[in-house]
């Protein structure tokens, strides 16, 4: 399964946010989408995940056009980690993972949920509610929620913001390892240049354009 971004252009009124963005990710490939705040990273991730439609261009995952079939493709093939929206507030960590499985795969694999919690080092926080978690624990829980559905494409938006260096390294390694174990493509949008060293490929974005 391949991700193809082809000539994506987006404007908010007169302000152009993205201009003719094109790139692709091969199966199991991992890449960093790097750019400063306001460079259009989040808008591009929204378009890739089918939450937003571009003015021009297209995004396809495994041949499915996200403009036509975005909801289903996102549901069945994507795990997404947002900068602030990590978990459903009314549910504990374990229930969040089970809900994600139920919604995205239609079934529940409790063994996978427990193994993922164990692997990410938050098994002892399985019954904790989101507001009871530290930032690091919340980020791990969000990763667990995204990978527990066995996605083909794992997307993370600013996963290391507000984390110290130790936690940044830890989260980066967890994302990379989780994607490898799931056999998923990994695309991380960040302004954090420290992550560059973990990825063989970096897609740089500046003022809505791909940088050379």
């Amino acid at each position: 399964m391949q991700l193809t971004v082809d000539g994506v252009t987006l404007s908010y009124g007169d302000r152009r946010v993205l201009s003719d963005i094109s790139f692709s990710l091969n199966p199991c490939e991992q890449a960093l989408l790097l750019g400063p705040s306001g460079s259009g990273k989040s808008s591009l991730l929204n378009i890739i995940s089918g939450l937003q439609t571009p003015d021009e261009g297209s995004v396809s995952l495994g041949g499915a056009d996200m403009a036509d079939d975005g909801d289903a493709t996102r549901k069945h093939h994507m795990g997404i980690i947002f900068q602030t929206l990590k978990l459903v507030s009314a549910l504990n960590v374990r229930a969040n993972l089970l809900l994600a499985q139920k919604l995205q795969t239609g079934g529940v694999d409790r063994n996978l949920v427990e193994a993922t919690l164990e692997r990410l080092g938050i098994a002892d926080r399985a019954k904790a509610r989101p507001f009871e978690l530290s930032q690091g624990e919340a980020q791990r829980a969000a990763i667990a929620r995204a990978v527990v559905v066995r996605p083909k494409l794992l997307i993370a938006d600013e996963p290391t913001s507000a984390l110290d260096l130790v936690n940044t390294e830890s989260v980066a390694r967890l994302l990379i390892e989780s994607a490898e174990e799931s056999g998923a493509m990994l695309l991380i949008a960040t302004h954090d240049d420290r992550l560059r060293s973990y990825f063989a490929r970096t897609i740089s974005l500046s003022e809505g354009r791909l940088a050379a």
Partner: peptide, 15 residues
């Protein structure tokens, strides 16, 4: 107050 939760549910595939 729960807009974020509901958006997350939509992202996770809830109709």
């Amino acid at each position: 107050s729960r807009e974020g939760d509901l958006a997350l549910l939509r992202v996770m595939g809830a109709s």
